[in-house]
Amino acid sequence: MTIAQDKTRVIYPDCDGNPMSDNTKQFRWIVVIKENLEILFADNPDVFIAGDLLWYPQEGNNRIRQAPDVVVAFGRPKGDRGSYRQWEENDISPQVVFEILSPRNRLKEMAKKLKFYDQYGVEEYYIFDPDRLDFHGWLRNPDGTLGVIEQPENWQSPRLGIRFELQDEQFTIYHPNGDRFLTPTELAKQSESQRQEAESQRQRAEAAEERVRELEARLRELGGDRDNEET
């Protein structure tokens, strides 16, 4: 049996049997980060973003894998995937990874993840613990290794352009334009508010046009009255 034939027999499961999140707080942050990044790069067809997606970096080995809470791969097209099989993605490894901690996460587990992301080419790695309000980051150094970001509490991602702020016991992420990352509920309310404002502007414009038409009609009437008086 050749190596190529052996590789075709390997099955790469789309699920590792682990839950996406352990609690509502962890799930909310995963959704907020993933969805806001989707919005940020909505007009760029070559930025792939996913949540809780298994990443297989090596063809032929389904045991080497991780499922980042949020993953961003520049240079890869948007679209649905059952897993991220790097050899099918022009061998491009995701450049940015987020992990949102839960009480179930252990130091040994996170150390293994850091080693994996370091080994397989992640450029930026961020960990946020919503219970302890701890935020940490790693950035790939010129020597090719992931190095700790010394002041992550006020840090701008080189790849994403977003900014992280941790102060006054509050963690906030900002878009490059300064807008705060919003929850899906806040985004929906914002969209509805914008829709209502647009509708109000439309109604005001129609009312103004109607007043102009009424004024023009009145002026025509006045002009006709003068003509009648002069004859």
Rank of each mutant, 00 (worst) to 15 (best):
H175T: 11
I3Q: 13
G79C: 08
L54R: 01
E210D: 13
F41W: 11
T185V: 15
Q196E: 15
L187Y: 03
T231G: 11
T231F: 13
F27N: 05
Y56H: 03
R9P: 02
A205E: 13
L222R: 12
S83L: 00
E206A: 12
F74T: 06
L219F: 08
R9T: 12
I149L: 02
Q66W: 10
Y126D: 02
Y174W: 10
G51N: 05
N90G: 08
N61E: 09
R195V: 02
Y126V: 12
L139G: 03
T183Q: 03
E169C: 12
I173F: 04
K189G: 02
A4T: 11
D91L: 12
T145V: 07
E89V: 03
L215D: 05
D227C: 04
I39F: 01
L54H: 00
S83T: 09
A198T: 12
Q201Y: 09
R104Q: 14
Q86V: 10
N62Q: 11
A198D: 10
V96R: 00
L53Y: 08
R65M: 04
L146H: 02
I127S: 00
A205S: 09
F128A: 05
A188F: 08
Y174E: 04
T145P: 05
G82F: 09
D227Q: 15
E206T: 13
L182T: 04
Q167N: 13
Q66T: 13
R220G: 01
E89I: 03
L133G: 04
Y117E: 00
R63Q: 13
Q58N: 14
Y125G: 00
D168G: 10
E169M: 08
T185E: 14
V122H: 03
D91T: 06
V212T: 14
L146Y: 05
F41Q: 02
S93Q: 02
M1S: 10
R195C: 06
L114H: 06
Q194G: 01
A73F: 00
E221V: 06
V47F: 00
A4D: 14
N62S: 15
E216Q: 13
V71G: 04
D14Y: 04
S157G: 04
G161V: 06
A73P: 04
K7F: 15
E35L: 10
V31Q: 05
I33V: 14
W29P: 01
L37D: 00
E99V: 06
V96E: 02
F181N: 00
R76M: 04
E192C: 05
D80F: 11
R195K: 12
F181Y: 03
Q151C: 11
L215F: 12
N90Q: 15
E169V: 10
Q170K: 14
T24L: 14
N177F: 07
D129S: 01
I92W: 01
G17V: 12
A188I: 09
N44V: 11
N105M: 06
L187R: 12
L160V: 00
G121Y: 06
R202T: 07
F98A: 06
T231C: 10
K108F: 05
R202L: 08
D6F: 13
Y126F: 15
L37M: 08
D134K: 07
T172V: 14
L222E: 15
D168S: 09
Q58W: 04
S83M: 05
I11F: 13
N36V: 04
P184T: 10
L139Y: 08
A207W: 12
